[in-house]
Design a binder for these strands. Structure first.
Length: 563
RNA sequence: GUUCCCGUAGCUCAGUCGGACAGAGCGACCGCCUCCUAAGCGGUAGGCCGGGCGUUCGAGUCGCCCCGGGAACGCCA
């Protein structure tokens, strides 16, 4: 923030060091009583040939305190800076009200596109709990980048290509029924798929038939194509219902099949640049120099592979969107795959290879091990969503029987709880899906943040709050100051979340605000008798609820005003 | 076997490009609604930060080795 800048500049004058360097040295003390910013003097000890505590003493005395900084105190090897709480409250709250919806945002990414490849559902496969992380993390990043002035391009890279669709057609023609499938949707398709595999074990001719049908899709045979499109439409219809519930939309559904006619370019280019090598019948790019297995571009039968398609997609996206970054929100299992083809793009001579980022995340498993369609222990996203909403509905009936629109709020809170869970921790952590954990709404959960928001809204409603000039000096008590500090820390958290592609940093910033506000709410009476105090506290409450709403919105979570 | 990731309180995790006594939530136990939403707030208990060596004024954080868990490793995506 501005105060940090000012302190760094002031330190720069006294130490003859670069302010930009110094600002990175400044840290936040472990507890608020120790000040708002701390400057560790250890690094100066060598050059100044003095003990850190001595340097701290001298600095604390000689420094010219910038505007808004009340005092500087030496504490061991640190100089602690104490902000003038009134000035801090004024600066932070005015910024909130000036920027409004855009608080925590900026024009950092102005004019630059960011492609975000996420969710990427498979056609004719169920949308299960394992798809939640990519969907929700991708969506949050989409919103975070937009908030920082980038233009996000959300891409659902559909899994809509491969021999499995030949299998689907064979199964459908043998055992399927149009009406049943129209009714049952993806579940029916999965049944057919499972049956195909069972029967193919004893009847290998089925696999031949499947290959033949897939060939017909590739060749554009009308019957094959229409069945294929039908499966696709059925799947998308179901999936879009879930996106609707989650409030997610995509700018592009260009999936695997979309790049079918765009892979020749990749092969030609690789060959032209002398990167392709024939090995065991396949065309590969040798990566042994980079300690990686080769990247296979063409199978020995001439067919393309996953990597070929991803490279084609990257080239297309660069041409189409001229992205500043292209993110792939995909589980860490595919780490090697991305490292391989990113390297291939680099070897092709494209400097933008460095802008390709694998945003990896941990895997979701059940309490009894990995989910698998075959084992049938897979948990469908829709089931989890409805369970969460039902549970929420019960709680509302119990706690807020008079609430109107219970169903709507139950949905917002139930869905919010689920989304929050996927954005609460660092991406890389594995997740064991556990109903009890998912349906627990106490503590640092989505409902907690939503509750805090609703609570603040409730106070403002009851008080008939209207904006008016504020005496910020009455917001200097410990609890109010903590709320101010938490709100003030929000913008940096958003930037860091973008830089690291880690939405949980926003989640944690929201928690910080909620915790501080709830404490404030408990300790200080917002609707104080004193009019000056009341107006100031209401203003703080208003700012709080606004920033919580912004934070939740960045995470893709609704902020109901009552619950 | 090789490479990558992870290992912090009973459980789930955070720990600011190394820095001030290691934090939070859940669970357990104990408190707080005649007063603004108790989906809240407070307190107690609970940790040789997997182990060792090293770098450093200083290591949960960096390097090396070991142990434990996960993932990937050529014609699937």
């Amino acid at each position: 923030m501005d105060f940090k800048q000012a302190i760094a500049s002031s330190l720069a004058e006294s130490t003859a060091l670069d302010a930009k360097e110094l600002i990175t040295w400044l840290e936040t003390p472990p507890s608020p009583e120790m000040g708002d910013y701390a400057f560790p003097c250890f690094k100066l000890a060598k050059t100044l040939r003095k003990a850190p505590p001595v340097i701290a003493q001298e600095l604390s005395r000689s420094l010219a305190l910038p505007e808004g900084v009340q005092r500087a105190e030496a504490a061991g090897g640190y100089v602690n800076f104490f902000l003038d709480k009134t000035a801090q409250a004024k600066a932070v709250l005015e910024r909130v009200f000036t920027q409004g919806e855009r608080y925590g945002g900026s024009d950092l990414g102005k004019g630059r596109n960011v492609c975000i490849d996420y969710s990427s559902v498979n056609i004719a496969k169920p949308f299960h709990i394992g798809h939640l992380p990519t969907t929700v993390i991708g969506n949050a990043l989409y919103r975070i980048y937009n908030h920082l002035g980038f233009h996000s391009v959300g891409i659902n890279h559909l899994g809509d290509w491969g021999t499995q669709f030949g299998k689907m057609i064979v199964a459908y023609k043998l055992w399927g029924d149009h009406e049943t499938i129209e009714q049952g949707g993806v579940d029916e398709l999965v049944k057919l798929y499972v049956r195909f595999h069972r029967e193919a074990e004893s009847d290998p001719s089925l696999d031949d038939a499947a290959r033949a049908w897939f060939k017909r899709i590739e060749d554009g045979d009308p019957e094959a194509l229409s069945l294929f499109e039908w499966f696709k439409a059925l799947t998308l219809k179901e999936v879009e219902q879930v996106y609707e519930i989650l409030g997610i939309r995509f700018d592009s559904y260009a999936g695997e099949s979309f790049y079918n006619d765009k892979m020749g370019r990749v092969v030609d280019e690789l060959r032209g640049k002398g990167l392709l090598k024939l090995d065991q019948g396949a065309q590969i790019v040798d990566l042994s120099e980079y300690k990686m297995p080769p990247c296979i571009i063409l199978r020995s039968d001439g067919a393309t592979l996953y990597a070929t398609r991803d490279i084609a997609a990257a080239l297309y996206r660069k041409d189409t969107y001229d992205f500043a970054k292209c993110l792939y929100v995909v589980a860490y299992q595919q780490d090697l795959h991305f490292r391989q083809w990113f390297k291939v793009v680099e070897l092709m001579g494209y400097s933008w290879a460095k802008d390709l980022v694998h945003v990896s995340f941990g895997m979701v498993s059940g309490t009894e091990g990995a989910f698998s369609t075959r084992k049938g222990n897979m948990v469908k996203l829709r089931d989890v969503l409805s369970a969460a909403c039902e549970k929420t509905y019960e709680i509302i009936c119990e706690k807020s029987p008079d609430l109107e629109e219970k169903k709507t709020v139950a949905r917002q809170v139930g869905v919010g709880a689920l989304v929050w869970n996927s954005l609460y921790n660092g991406r890389i952590k594995d997740v064991v899906f556990d109903w009890d954990a998912v349906l627990n709404f106490d503590g640092e959960t989505g409902p907690y943040a939503q509750y805090t928001h609703a609570r603040a809204c409730s106070v403002l409603r009851k008080a008939n709050y209207a904006p008016a000039p504020v005496d910020y000096s009455v917001l200097t008590d410990t609890e109010a100051a903590a709320v101010v500090a938490a709100i003030g820390a929000f913008p940096d958290a958003v930037v860091e979340a973008m830089e690291k592609n880690e939405p949980y940093l926003v989640t944690r910033a929201v928690i910080g605000i909620c915790a501080a506000f709830n404490k404030f709410y408990y300790e200080q009476r917002i609707m104080a008798d004193d009019e000056i105090v009341r107006q100031a506290r209401l203003t703080l409450t208003d700012a709080t609820r606004k920033v919580i709403a912004i934070g939740l919105n960045l995470l893709g979570i609704a902020a109901p005003e009552r619950m």
